[in-house]
Design a protein around this nucleic acid. Structure first.
Length: 667
RNA sequence: GGCGGUGUAGCUCAGUUGGCUAGAGCAUACGGUUCAUACCCGUAGAGUCGUCAGUUCGAAUCUGACCGCCGCCA
């Protein structure tokens, strides 16, 4: 029996929507943590699942003409299958419609009723059916005599019903004490502070039942009511372990949870309500709640209507699971919000995975093949300065890696690994093995160098084992030690543990470089109209701000005087417009091709679409600032700016008074 | 409206308790190398450290005001 246990959970995902990059993010990270802890010798239990009760599930099932259970079965299967395809290593998958969950929840609720922690009261207020949430009179959006939900703009209904309440207020002081004694209970610390503020502000009892729908767990003492989402969903963390059943070995073994990994939107439930419920049940509290940030996709919030709720499967298929995982952990600072950008993903693949890591594997195996018939040599002779440096960098990396991984600083852990990879590449430059191969009597030295590189690769593979399983395994295979991979632990992270004598495999590079121009993008933004409107609105706003700023400046400073030398910095020239076309998606911008004399052509972008048509512009000789720094306006390159006069709505281009050649300078 | 965070090189970000010429990666330019996936190694860049004022011998780092963005709550 292993005494060190580790219980990690993801949120249970709501059954109304299919898995997307956001749910995959939580699951991937929890998976990596689970694998890391196993790697470090822990007996790990990793739980994920689906939350299947509630009105929205019911509605959606009806829309699809299915009974709710049938609908949930299909939705749950989507998650289960995806996690399987992604080789997520969860030990269990809990569904809140399973009997094992419902039975325990009923028992737990009964217990809370018996203890007096759940009582009957009355709840009245405005209610949003879609969001399943109450809304205060103040927050409601008033329009046409109707009151609308501030979040979703649907009409609010007056709601009055007898509800059961959980005595959350009773636990306020205990929660405060928890936060004081265990500051690490909620992370990151800024999330903890947010929670602390809520607690200090005073906790209200929580309405936990509904009578408006019946797709839920009935209250054991009153079948008219079903349990509202939170108590039901949160309890999954213990029902999955068989809490309060006669098969509670798992609960005894793994509870309290070491880590509830969640998204920031459900922090309040996990950092306040969940511990309060556990206090009421006299169950030990989890050790940590970690609320990670949200992902945007190419700078946009994830939403179905925008079409960027990417199916993680597509990404995995296009780029490989390890690459996607690497990117998520390396580029998005864990805990903070981050942006998933496909361009950045490709950048990371090329620079970090192909150039740095992949190339290191490739060049090392190639040299062993050329010089030692592919057999990894034993180190011979004395250590040289670079050898000692390499070893030192390894030792530092090991310390950093373990520290950062233990503290959930994954971005930094990867950074440490890549510092080592970087130095291994430099080590090749320092030792110049290709020269050693040509010189007489240097074979021993060459053996040592290539051995060190092989051992570096072995250690790199081990660093990556919990994070990028396939890559890790593949490096072992390339080193000819494939059968040693299974069962390796952090204890094998040591210098010179490689035995040598195995035969390397030199095949195609493990990470081919991607041609940015040729890669078919997975993320395609839909709804271009909405995008265009938004972009236009943004441009307008920016312009308005600029105008306002300019006005303000004038008012404050009056007309500013400049010296002649300042004026000479500006190169003004005559230009003939040879082509004009509006910039797509923009209300104001026009793209112009100019003739600037001496066969010089130039493209500029100007905000004149509202005043001139393209046809009117062609042929006009205008005045431009020719030495303005190039800029991009709505993605279009602009290499200058035209001059125009503006007087309220009146807007006129400056032109030359009579014939003159394009390119002529103005002074 | 209250509380909190944040604004540092073209981009993404590090910068402990205030202290030598402000850092890393990517991108760019140049040089080196050729074992390797035009890769790797090295060198370089006039960054007002959001703006303004203050404390100090000295501030990106502390204080105040303001501007921008974000989060939580109401």
């Amino acid at each position: 029996m292993n005494s060190k246990t580790f219980y990690v959970t993801t949120p249970i995902y709501y059954a109304t929507s299919a898995p997307h990059i956001g749910s995959a993010y939580s699951t991937i990270i929890a998976d990596m943590i689970a694998r890391y802890k196993r790697f470090c010798g822990y007996d790990v239990y990793y739980l994920t699942g689906t939350d299947e009760h509630g009105q929205k599930v019911l509605e959606q099932a009806q829309v699809q003409g299915k009974n709710p259970q049938e609908f949930c079965d299909e939705q749950a299967a989507k998650f289960i299958n995806l996690w399987k395809e992604m080789e997520i290593s969860n030990d269990d998958f809990i569904r809140t419609t399973q009997k094992r969950h419902e039975d325990v929840v009923s028992a737990v609720v009964q217990k809370l009723v018996d203890n007096g922690d759940i009582y009957k009261g009355k709840y009245e207020g405005l209610y949003c059916v879609h969001d399943e949430a109450f809304c205060t009179e103040e927050d409601a959006v008033k329009r046409d005599g109707k009151k609308l939900c501030p979040d979703c703009n649907r009409e609010l209904k007056w709601f009055s019903e007898e509800n059961y309440f959980f005595k959350l207020s009773k636990y306020q002081d205990k929660l405060l004490k928890l936060y004081e004694e265990k500051p690490e209970f909620t992370e990151p610390s800024f999330r903890r502070n947010e929670m602390l503020q809520i607690i200090k502000g005073g906790l209200h009892d929580l309405s936990i039942s509904r009578t408006s729908f019946d797709w839920g767990i009935p209250l054991p003492n009153d079948n008219e009511h079903v349990l509202y989402v939170w108590v039901d969903a949160l309890l999954n963390y213990i029902t999955a372990l068989g809490y309060s059943t006669d098969k509670d070995e798992l609960f005894k073994k793994y509870w309290p949870a070491d880590l509830h990994l969640i998204g920031k939107e459900i922090n309040r439930f996990h950092s306040i309500i969940w511990p309060a419920i556990l206090m009421a049940l006299d169950i030990p509290l989890p050790k940590k709640v970690f609320a990670h940030g949200w992902l945007t996709v190419n700078g946009e919030k994830i939403s179905k209507s925008r079409g960027n709720a990417i199916d993680p499967r597509l990404l995995m298929d296009a780029y490989g699971k390890d690459a996607v995982v690497y990117y998520l952990l390396r580029d998005i600072n864990f805990g903070r919000d981050g942006d998933f950008s496909e361009d950045n993903l490709i950048g990371r693949i090329n620079s970090d995975l192909a150039n740095d890591l992949g190339n290191l594997v490739h060049r090392t195996t190639a040299m062993i093949k050329q010089n030692f018939d592919g057999v990894i040599p034993q180190p011979e002779g004395e250590c040289d300065a670079p050898d000692i440096q390499l070893k030192n960098v390894f030792e530092n990396t090991l310390t950093d890696y373990l520290n950062n991984m233990d503290n959930y600083k994954f971005t930094q852990a990867l950074d440490a690994i890549w510092t080592f990879i970087g130095f291994a590449n430099k080590y090749i430059d320092l030792t110049q093995p290709w020269k050693l191969a040509k010189e007489e009597g240097k074979k021993e030295r060459l053996a040592t160098v290539l051995y060190n590189l092989s051992d570096a690769l072995r250690n790199i593979a081990l660093f990556l084992k919990p994070i990028m399983k396939d890559t890790s395994k593949e490096i072992f295979r390339r080193l000819g030690i494939k059968d040693q991979w299974e069962g390796t632990t952090y204890e094998q992270l040591k210098w010179e543990l490689l035995e040598g004598g195995s035969t390397v495999i030199k095949e195609k590079p493990i990470y081919p470089r991607l041609d940015v121009a040729k890669v078919k993008k997975v993320i395609i933004m839909k709804d271009p109209e909405e995008e265009a409107d938004k972009a236009a609105a943004k441009a307008d706003a920016a312009e308005a701000r600029a105008d306002a700023a300019a006005t303000k400046e004038e008012k404050i400073e009056g007309v500013q005087l400049i010296g002649f030398e300042d004026f000479t910095k500006i190169q003004l020239r005559v230009a003939e417009i040879v082509e004009a076309e509006p910039v797509p998606k923009s209300r104001k911008l026009m793209k112009l091709q100019l003739e600037l004399g001496e066969e010089e052509k130039r493209q500029i972008v100007a905000g004149i679409s509202q005043h001139y048509t393209a046809e009117e512009l062609v042929g006009k000789k205008i005045i431009v600032v020719a030495n303005l720094k190039p800029a991009k306006l709505m993605g279009v390159q602009s290499n200058g700016m035209l001059l125009a006069a503006k007087d309220g709505e009146n807007f006129r281009l400056l032109t030359a008074d009579g014939p003159i050649n394009p390119g002529a300078k103005i002074s």
